[in-house]
Write a protein that binds this DNA or RNA. Structure first.
Length: 423
RNA sequence: GGAGAGGUGGCCGAGAGGCUGAAGGCGCUGGUUUGCUAAACCAGUAUACGGCCCAAAGCUGUAUCGAGGGUUCGAAUCCCUCCCUCUCCGCCA
C-alpha cells in the first residue's frame, strides 16, 4: 500500500510512475484526491466538536438538578453531531483504504520501462547449454522411466497435479534439503511456516483483496498459501523489529488456483496447482533494500550454480512487474527439452509497500522515530522446476538421467535416474 | 466439540462509569554520585491521525486498555458479537 500523505502531495508523480505499469494502474488513484480532502475536513470538524464536548462534560460532575439537565440536553445534541461526523469520516476512510489497497506499488527508478515480458532485459548469463542430440521434454523422460505419473494424478486430483515415484520423489525432497543448506550457509534462518493463513496475512503481503481468485480457500475460511512469502513476511506483522537485517529461508508447498492461465503450460511440472518451494525472505532498512536485492539474487543463484545448471538473470520491466513489487529479477534456467529459458526464481524488493500493509517497523536508533522496514523475497528455488531442469539437462541417449554431483550426497550417492523397478 | 478463566503500555501488574495515556514495579535513555563494575538518587521514556510552522524542532487537538458494535452528556470499567490465549474433558497425528 502506498502512503496516503505522499500520494496526495505527489499525485502527478504517482500517476506517472504507475502508468509505466500499463493496464490502467494509475486510474485507481483517481478518487483519492477528493476523498482525502473530505477526510481532512471531517477530522477537523469532528475533533473540534469533540474537544468542546469533552470540556463541557467535565462540568457535569459539579452541577445538579435543573442546571445539569440543561447541560445534558446541550451535550446530547453535541454528542449526536460528533457521532454523525465520525460515521461519515469512517465511511470516507474505508473508501480511501479500499482504493489504496487496489493500487500497485511504484516501480523503482532503476526498472526499465516496457509494456510486457518482451521488454524484460537480460542482465547476465551463467554457464552454457549442454550438447544434447535430440532433447526430449521432462514429461517424456520422467514418464518413460516410471518416475512421473500424471494420469493417475488426474484421476485422483484433477489437472495440474502429479505423482512422483521412486528416486524422483526422493530427489524432490533432497533438493529441498540442499536448498535449505545453501541458504543457511548464506546466513538465513530456517523457518517452517503454516501452510494455511488468515485473510489479514494475505492482505499484508498483497494477495488480498485484489487477487482472491488466484487462491484456494478452505471451508473454515483459511487460505492455502501460494508461497511461503505470505506466512514468513507476516511472521513479523504488527511488530517493531530491533535488529536488521533479518533473513529467513522457509520450505513450503505452494497452492495456486492458476485462474486465468488455462491453456498455458498444461503439460508437465511447470505449472501445477501444488508445488514445493524454498523461499528466501529478508527484512531490511529502507536504504539497504537495493543492495539487499542484488545480494538476494546471488543467494538464489548459488544452488543453481552448484548444480551446474545453465541460467540467466533478467530484470522485469515496468509492464511485467508484480502488484506489490518495486523491482524484480527473475532467474531463468535453460530447458533443453523446451529449447527455452524458464523462470525458476523470482527475486523482488517491495520497499515499504508490504510493511505498510502489515505494519512492520523498526527504530533506527534509540529516541528516533519508527520507520517502516523494506521487505524482500525470492525463490531459492522452485523445487519442481529444478527437477524439470535436472531431467532435461541430464538426459542421456539411453533414456537415463545423470544427476548433478552436488545433489548425490543427498541421495546416498545415487548417480543417475534409471527405470523404476516395480516391486 | 463441551466447561471454565483470561486478554490493560517494551514487559509485569493495579484500576471496576468522569479527576486515567492509564497507579506501582521492571526495563530502557540521560544526568548526579562513584578507583572500575555494581548500587543509590534525580529526570525522561508510546503510537497514529489532524492543526499551527517553508521545514525540522516545538506547541496544540483527537484517538488508542484484544477487535467491532451498543448504552450514556461521559466507557479500560456496563451490554452484545467476534477473535485469541490458558486450564480441564472429549477427539486426534
Amino acid at each position: 500500500m502506498l502512503d496516503l500523505k505522499w500520494v496526495v502531495a505527489n499525485l502527478e508523480e504517482a500517476k506517472e510512475r504507475l502508468s509505466a505499469r500499463g493496464g490502467g494502474a494509475a486510474q485507481a488513484l483517481a478518487p483519492i484526491e477528493q476523498l482525502a480532502q473530505e477526510r481532512r475536513q471531517l477530522i477537523q470538524e469532528s475533533e473540534s466538536r469533540r474537544a468542546e464536548q469533552k470540556k463541557a462534560s467535565e462540568q457535569m460532575r459539579s452541577l445538579k438538578g435543573e442546571e445539569q439537565a440543561k447541560l445534558r440536553a446541550h451535550l446530547k445534541s453535541l454528542s449526536d453531531e460528533v457521532k454523525e461526523k465520525e460515521a461519515r469520516l469512517k465511511e470516507v476512510e474505508e473508501r480511501i483504504e479500499a482504493a489504496l489497497l487496489g493500487v500497485p506499488n511504484l516501480p523503482h527508478s532503476s526498472v526499465p520501462k516496457g509494456a510486457g515480458p518482451e521488454q524484460n532485459q537480460v542482465v547476465r548469463e551463467w554457464g552454457s547449454k549442454p550438447r544434447i542430440a535430440q532433447p526430449r521434454e521432462h514429461t517424456e523422460i520422467g514418464e518413460k522411466l516410471g518416475l512421473l505419473d500424471f494420469e493417475r494424478a488426474a484421476k485422483v486430483s484433477g489437472a495440474r497435479f502429479v505423482f512422483y515415484r521412486g528416486a524422483l520423489a526422493r530427489l524432490e525432497l533432497a533438493l529441498v534439503q540442499f536448498f535449505l543448506d545453501s541458504a543457511r550457509e548464506r546466513g538465513y534462518l530456517d523457518l517452517l511456516p503454516p501452510y494455511l493463513v488468515n485473510a489479514d496475512s494475505m492482505r499484508g503481503t498483497g494477495q488480498l483483496p485484489k487477487f482472491e481468485e488466484d487462491l484456494f480457500k478452505t471451508t473454515a475460511g483459511h487460505y492455502l498459501i501460494p508461497t511461503a512469502e505470505v506466512p514468513v513476511t507476516n511472521y513479523h506483522r504488527d511488530e517493531i523489529l530491533e535488529h536488521l537485517p533479518i533473513k529467513y529461508c522457509a520450505f513450503s508447498p505452494c497452492f495456486r488456483s492458476e485462474a486465468g492461465s488455462y491453456g498455458k503450460d498444461t503439460k508437465g511440472l511447470i505449472r501445477q496447482h501444488q508445488f514445493h518451494k524454498v523461499e528466501l525472505v529478508r527484512f531490511e532498512k529502507p536504504e539497504d533494500a537495493q543492495a539487499a536485492l542484488e545480494q538476494l539474487v546471488l543467494d538464489a543463484q548459488a544452488p543453481l550454480q552448484k548444480l551446474g545448471l545453465h541460467h540467466r538473470v533478467t530484470v522485469l520491466c515496468t509492464g511485467d512487474l508484480g502488484f506489490s513489487a518495486e523491482k524484480t529479477y527473475d532467474l531463468e534456467v535453460w530447458l533443453p527439452g523446451q529449447g527455452a529459458f524458464r523462470e525458476i526464481s523470482s527475486c523482488s524488493t517491495f520497499g515499504d509497500f508490504q510493511a505498510r500493509r502489515a505494519q512492520i517497523r523498526h527504530r533506527p536508533a534509540p529516541g528516533e522515530k519508527l520507520r517502516l522496514v523494506a521487505t524482500l523475497n525470492g525463490s531459492g528455488l522452485a523445487v519442481g522446476r529444478t527437477v524439470v531442469a535436472i531431467l532435461e539437462n541430464g538426459q542421456q541417449a539411453d533414456g537415463s538421467v545423470v544427476l548433478p554431483e552436488a545433489i548425490r550426497p543427498y541421495l546416498g550417492g545415487l548417480e543417475r535416474l534409471e527405470p523404476v523397478r516395480e516391486l
